[in-house]
């Protein structure tokens, strides 16, 4: 599904070139559950953003489901992204002015899905995540764990093939974190959604089928 070849990313500061990613070669198959680990500044998030097409590498090739991503037109890439990728953040990043229902609905709006269908999909999602009772609340009225639940529901509402999660449990206590991880596992196993997560926690990393260790922008080891 994902084919990364010789991915480099650097920034020039002063006369020096600082590498964020150095010669990353990685292939991920559909249905994989990958955990990326590594110390702060090792390039985990950057790698995730490159995979999520939010960031462009300085060099290298990225093939996503058979398409060479960086050779595509902006519009095509945006469509590809909209249809297949969902994001979950450490800080949830729900829109404060929207209710739970509306937050989950938003990705569908950008895919031009008709109102009635949208309603059905969102209702289904609320049901599945057991947050029907909270649908009219605003993010500020929810606990962190509940907010992240909404975040995950929002990321999955458009039925993406790939779910990218940047430290999804970083702001949660261990019990809440565990719930989210169980949820991920379920999604991965039952729906076949490919998951790539960045994490600091060994325990959470162990939910993945493969763990990639990064150090100074390089893949140090895979297990």
């Amino acid at each position: 599904m994902i084919e990364l070849q010789h991915i480099y990313k650097w920034i020039n500061s002063g006369g020096n070139r600082t590498f964020l990613l150095k010669d990353i070669n990685l292939s991920i198959a559909e249905g994989d559950f990958i955990s990326i680990m590594g110390p702060s500044g090792s390039g985990k998030s950057t790698l995730l953003n490159v995979m999520g097409m939010l960031d462009e590498p300085s060099e290298g090739q990225y093939v996503f489901m058979g398409d060479d991503v960086f050779k595509m037109k902006e519009k095509q890439r945006s469509n590809l992204y909209k249809q297949h990728i969902g994001f979950v953040f450490q800080a949830y990043h729900l829109i404060d002015e929207l209710t739970v229902y509306e937050n989950i609905e938003t990705p569908l709006l950008y895919q031009d899905i008709k109102g009635a269908e949208r309603k059905a999909i969102v209702a289904d999602m609320l049901d599945r995540f057991q947050i029907v009772g909270k649908k009219d609340l605003f993010p500020a009225q929810l606990s962190g764990g509940q907010q992240q639940l909404v975040g995950v529901a929002r990321a999955l509402v458009a039925k993406p093939k790939l779910l990218l999660a940047d430290e999804p449990t970083g702001n949660l206590n261990s019990k809440q974190g565990e719930e989210i991880m169980e949820l991920f596992k379920k999604i991965n196993e039952e729906d076949g959604v490919t998951i790539v997560q960045v994490t600091h926690s060994e325990k959470n990393a162990a939910y993945g089928s493969r763990i990639i260790h990064l150090l100074d922008g390089r893949i140090e080891s895979t297990q």
Partner: peptide, 16 residues
């Protein structure tokens, strides 16, 4: 800006 960022991640295009 945060809202803009989230919307873009959720698939919003610039013109939207």
């Amino acid at each position: 800006a945060m809202e803009v960022g989230v919307r873009k991640v959720l698939g919003a295009e610039r013109r939207q």
